[in-house]
Amino acid sequence: MAEFWSGYALPGAIIVAQILVIIVPLLGAVAYLTLAERKVIAAIQLRKGPNVVGPFGLLQPIADGVKLLLKETVIPSGANPVVFVIAPMLTFMLSLIAWAAIPFDLGLVLADINVGILYLFAISSLGVYGIIMAGWASNSKYAFLGALRSAAQMVSYEVSIGFVIITVLLCVGSLNLTEIVLAQENMWFFIPLFPMFIIFFVSGLAETNRSPFDLPEGESEIVAGYFVEYSSMSFALFFLGEYANMILVSAMTSVLFLGGWLPPFDVAPFTWIPGPIWFAGKIGLCLFVFLWVRATMPRYRYDQLMRLGWKVFLPFSLFWVVLTAGVLMATGWVPR
């Protein structure tokens, strides 16, 4: 019995505690990201944004959450109930489990797996299922159209994300996220791989269905796309999943191109600030750009979206992979 407690129960409890330490602040961040979005966009549009609930509207997300929790979940009569209910749960769950591999500081990571970046890539490629399942199970034309758009869009942009990841790991020689960050000690990768950085970020916008690639929602044409039939908490899970995915893509951008937890310069005043704060700051910066883009850009037309993905990003990132590999081989900078 003692072996059970020390061998299984205690490590299990520690893991659960670690998971909670990651997820609880994450959910808080998601909640306040919604507020930040409204505030930032309001500021860009010279409005005030939410300012009634609490000081500066700070309690607004909580009010929204309580409202959604208390409403009734409506399952449309023509819907496929099991799939309909599973879809939002899947979306939300996938946006959380990806965080297991993200390093917050040297050694501060839940699962330091060998193939961390592939794990993130795999999880983000699964994200499409929540959307397709929702669109199909709703048994509604708008929802189905939204789901199809989203599936095509995410599959298309995943290809260029894959090539961007390949360039980064050509420069690192490892798929481990901690190693990827450590390889940027001298120079963050967004400097030598600047075009790839841009492609990654823009593909990230498409991958999270954010403006200007928010065609799956496209409220002016297909009402709200795949989640048009969802209400209350099932809707909230989609909503939370979308914002958690934004944070995840920002974290991936930071890890791959902005040096993760590393300070910009390895000298005194910068090194006083602990790594996780730097990491959070970089995520915040990326998130701000997400919101900024949303307030600035008009939505892409569907054929333009496909053209950008297949005819611009794909050939260019392929070319850049070849170029990077060639330069690394020619100069002998190949890691290991």
């Binding site: 193939v115 490629s125 894959g162």
Partner: peptide, 15 residues
């Protein structure tokens, strides 16, 4: 075989 596992998910499940 973690690499195969991830590739299986990315290629078969994801695409």
């Amino acid at each position: 075989a973690e690499f195969l596992a991830m590739i299986l998910v990315v290629v078969y499940v994801g695409a």
